[in-house]
Amino acid sequence: MRAQVNQDECIGCGGCASLCPEVFQLGDSGKSTVISDPVPAEHEAAAKTAADNCPVGAISLA
């Protein structure tokens, strides 16, 4: 599974970093960045939770 955060849409709320810190982290820009790509199998469920709970739908998983 690959994860991507649309930097234009991300509002830097940190929700994904809270729900799946192994994959998402707030970068210096204040926006979420993917730190583990591809997503390790054991974190796929958490990454999906993070994507589902992103308030602006900026996370895509494929």
């Binding site: 929700g15 809270s18 729900l19 939770t49 709970n53 308030p55």
Partner: peptide, 13 residues
């Protein structure tokens, strides 16, 4: 309610 998942995390924090 839309932020329930984050509510639980915030309480843990």
């Amino acid at each position: 309610n839309p932020f329930g998942r984050l509510v639980a995390r915030k309480i843990d924090e």
